[in-house]
Amino acid sequence: MSSSPQFTDLEYERSADGVYKLNYDVRAEMDTPIRNHAWCLRLSLPDDDFFEVEHFSRYVEPECSPSTAVDYLGQEYSYGLVREDHSVFRYGLSATIRQHSSYGRRPDTVPIQIFLRSDRLTELDHKNIPWLAAFQSPDKPKDPLEWSIGAMHEITQNMIYLTGTTNYSTPAGDAVSQGSGVCQDFAHILIGLCRAHGVPARYVNGFFVGEGETHAWVEVFVQGRWYGLDPTHNRLVVQDYVPLARGRNAEDCSLNRGVWSSVVQQHQRISASLVEVGE
């Protein structure tokens, strides 16, 4: 990563509101039909001070009367069951969102300490990687937010964004050793660094402005608020981001889980776009 955006100023003014159009569509095609397909999808926008949802619709095909429930962070999700044979499973949402770009999200009721617990995906062994070793001082950072931002800089300077070198279950440590990964790996590394220093950190899955797939970033908990950091783009998450799921790591935030009984080859096409449409 060559140049990184400048943002030494940590004061975040409430800037002008932006209006965004979000479209998310996933089409999974199976080579042979499946049945008794139980699914669980993140198809709800968070209930947040920072958003006003002006228009919202979502769909799941084949039709199967979905239900909704709420997870431990109070986030709504959808689930259901498709009994009959089908070889295409499609779902998505579209929304128009007015986003207020203030910074610092309120805490949830779940104990914050769970975001300090290391896990398989975010655990880091500092010893063998020089740039990680530099983080090894056991002292708690004086200003945890500033410290976290510094850690994010380090990641962007020492890691190369390269698709195909990691997969959905690659632990942060492996990505660090090979020096490359994608947004998920960058996020896991930052989470691992923060937790090792006593800064609660969590994973966010959602959308970043532009066209493409879904994106992942990090939130750190400092002085009673959650602040978003995007180690892939080396920037603070102020506007231009729409979260869909928060949790301890990527597995906790998977947008889509499905279970059926046969073994099939699956081809998945994801398209996501988040576009600012102005006032």
């Binding site: 431990y72 009721t109 779940v110 617990r117 301890r248």
Partner: peptide, 16 residues
């Protein structure tokens, strides 16, 4: 606190 939150048997999934 350490005996609860650091313990993998404490499951946030059933919090609340």
């Amino acid at each position: 606190e350490e005996f609860v939150f650091a313990c993998p048997a404490y499951l946030p999934e059933v919090y609340g």
